[in-house]
């Protein structure tokens, strides 16, 4: 800490034209755009330990539980057990737990900046709040999508070959697409929703708690609603709970009615879009 010379070497600059004279830097002036913000957010997300932890645990959970479930089913079945079933559906358990990691990383992407005060630096460097939110969303969505796609794709391939001898049907192209790209889009949207909640709540622990509540509460509430009068609500909570929506991608929904096919993706897309609009409006109106 001993190099204390003046910071820049130029001689005092001649005042440039225009009504506001002053110093002119030799550094080329660049009109900033979304690309710059994306590069910055990419550096940010890969340069903190929490990303490594959450994604590391995510990969462990999805691959570990997926393969364990596959192995367990395979060793306990004969050639008829799974007749006609979709062999990819055992990826569900790993992803259900893995969603907690994606939620945590999503929340941390925004809320940790409020916790550390970094957000003031971020917003000073990029005063367009819309651009900051967009850059964070795009970078996070891409990371979450790629990681889920890679892990769920790997698990699906291993399971499909593992369970060939159990009478399970050969997955169709549609099965494959839903169990890999479909579920990955859904998980990335769930993470993006968490990122937006983090931006609204501005508190990591608070936002993570809320998102885990969103993940689990409908299912747990439904368990308690055993009375006849609440049967409709109970069924609705079951069907539209996030775990059930996840299972729809494997065509093994807990019930026969409710969302089916690609419905969960459209539901999550709509929900995320609404929350995005709300988070953006709040970000614009609130002080940093």
């Amino acid at each position: 800490m001993s190099t204390h010379q003046p910071p820049m070497q130029q001689a005092p600059a001649a005042a440039p034209g225009g009504p506001y004279p002053g110093y002119t830097s030799p550094i080329p002036v660049v009109r900033t755009h979304l690309g710059h913000a994306l590069a910055s957010e990419w550096t940010k997300i890969k340069s903190v330990r929490s990303t490594l932890w959450t994604l590391g645990v995510f990969v462990l959970l999805v691959v570990g539980i997926g393969l364990m479930a596959g192995a367990l089913v395979e060793s306990n079945s004969d050639s008829e057990t799974l007749s006609g079933e979709n062999p990819l559906s055992f990826g569900f358990f790993g992803l259900l737990l893995g969603s907690i990691c994606i939620i945590t990383l999503g929340v941390l992407t925004t809320a940790s900046e409020y916790g550390t005060g970094m957000i003031r630096t971020t917003m000073t460097a990029c005063p367009s709040r819309a651009r900051v939110l967009a850059a964070k969303s795009i970078v996070f969505f891409a990371v979450a999508f790629v990681f889920t796609l890679a892990t769920s794709g790997f698990v699906a391939m291993v399971q499909a070959s593992m369970l060939e001898s159990t009478g399970a049907r050969t997955p169709t192209g549609g099965d494959w697409l839903k169990a890999t790209v479909g579920i990955s889009l859904y998980m990335a949207l769930l993470g993006l929703l968490s990122l937006l909640i983090g931006s609204v709540i501005r508190h990591s622990a608070g936002a993570i708690t809320i998102m885990i509540g969103v993940l689990l509460a409908p299912l747990v509430l439904a368990l308690f609603m055993a009375t006849e009068s609440l049967a409709k609500l109970r069924e609705w909570l079951f069907e539209y709970s996030i775990p059930n929506q996840l299972s729809v991608f494997y065509a093994n929904s807990l019930s026969e009615s409710g969302p089916s096919g690609w419905d969960p993706l459209w539901i999550m897309l709509g929900l995320t879009a609404v929350v995005y609009a709300g988070a953006y409006a709040l970000l614009q109106s609130r002080d940093v």
Binding site: I27, V30, T32, H36, A37, A39, S40, E41, T43, K44, S47, T121, T122, A125, C126
Partner: peptide, 12 residues
């Protein structure tokens, strides 16, 4: 990395 992400956000 802190300074790098700031630099990138402004094309510095």
């Amino acid at each position: 990395n802190h300074l790098l992400c700031l630099a990138q956000s402004n094309g510095i």
